[in-house]
């Protein structure tokens, strides 16, 4: 069953007098129920913006320029105000990058959980103080926090604990989809690893659909079933995480990303960065946006934009050389050698 389906999503930033920035360009994707999908890319590639667009969290000056976003068959792109608010219960939740600052500094965790529960109570439901307490203990337990956290203020918690508390708040909605926007970026490495472990277990145990947005290829491949690679506002590759790890055909950008991370067990490590910088997103792209930084780019790449096309094993790649047909892929490989 498809839980969320996005078609032709375009997100534009329109600053006061400045130029329009096309941050997300014609992105289509679908998320199956219970699936754990990752989105990777450099900063500024539009991955967080996409996550915000999918959950109707875009703030001005960003807005959804065009596109359809269907959640359980309902188009949520046009929803505003109360209509949107009601969709959030048993719907979609977000965990923000800076979970540290995602909690109201002057309210206890107990009150903040209570706020979420009260906001979504259905007819006849009543959340007494005790009921909020019991539910709070239950939610905190899910994210591995002690019930004593309930009475504390955010500043009394460590960074990792705050992010867990934020996840507990998101879970209070009983969401079917949670978008994790760089949930571990602001934390130190050990806390990061523990938090990712917890997210994975939570997802497996509760069965919600998860979209993990991260710049860290290894984190994404470790946690997810499927990985989407974005470059300059577009999806350039969409493959199962296993296929990604096992090698096979990849977009040159994906390969470049792989080279940026070292395998800790490898004997020699050669880390490479990707020379050049991403293109100006205020300009239209009529060619392959990655061509200027690509090591195997050839004539066609400079005039024609490659479309996302199916490759074997259920994945898709947007590249003239590695994409659609077997021949062009072979040529590409020779050309690059």
């Amino acid at each position: 069953m498809i839980l969320l389906e996005a078609k032709g999503v375009n997100v534009v930033y329109q600053p006061g007098r400045g130029e329009r920035i096309w941050a997300v360009r014609d992105v289509s994707l679908s998320l199956e129920e219970g699936e754990f999908v990752g989105v990777v890319g450099e900063s500024g590639c539009g991955k967080s913006t996409l996550g915000f667009a999918l959950t109707q969290m875009l703030q001005p000056p960003a807005f959804l320029e065009s596109g359809v976003i269907e959640f359980r068959g309902v188009d949520i792109a046009g929803l505003r105000g109360e209509g949107l608010r009601h969709q959030r219960r048993r719907g979609f939740a977000v965990v923000l990058q800076s979970g540290m600052n995602a909690l109201n500094p002057v309210r206890t965790i107990h009150h903040q959980i209570g706020d979420v529960l009260q906001a979504h109570k259905l007819g006849g439901e009543h959340w007494s103080k005790d009921a909020v307490h019991d539910r709070g203990v239950e939610l905190l337990g899910m994210v591995g926090l002690d019930s004593s956290v309930l009475g504390r203020f955010p500043h009394e918690l460590s960074g990792g604990m705050r992010q867990r508390a934020a996840i507990a708040l998101a879970l209070a909605l009983e969401p079917e989809l949670i978008v994790f926007d760089e949930p571990t970026t602001a934390l130190d490495v050990i806390v990061q690893a523990a938090l990712m472990e917890m997210i994975k277990e939570l997802q497996r145990a509760r069965g919600f659909t998860a979209l993990l947005i991260s710049h860290d290829m290894s984190v994404v491949l470790d946690a997810t079933d499927r990985a989407i690679v974005m470059y300059a506002g577009r999806i350039v590759e969409d493959q199962g995480s296993m296929q990604m790890v096992q090698g096979g055909r990849h977009h040159p950008y994906t390969e470049a990303l792989f080279r940026c991370y070292a395998d800790p067990r490898a004997d020699d490590v050669v880390l490479q960065d990707i020379p050049g910088s991403p293109p100006d997103l205020s300009l239209p792209d009529s060619s392959c946006a990655f061509a200027p930084r690509c090591t195997i780019a050839e004539g066609r790449c400079w005039h024609e934009r490659p479309l996302l096309a199916e490759v074997g094993s259920g994945g898709a790649i947007a590249c003239h050389l590695r994409g659609s047909s077997e021949e062009s892929a072979m040529e590409g490989r020779q050309g690059g050698a």
Partner: peptide, 19 residues
């Protein structure tokens, strides 16, 4: 961020504005 997060969690407008 906590205001954005409160909106993401679908809190009532009045709750967000005041509390």
């Amino acid at each position: 961020d906590y205001v954005l997060f409160a909106e993401a969690n679908g809190l009532r407008n009045r709750t967000i504005a005041l509390l």
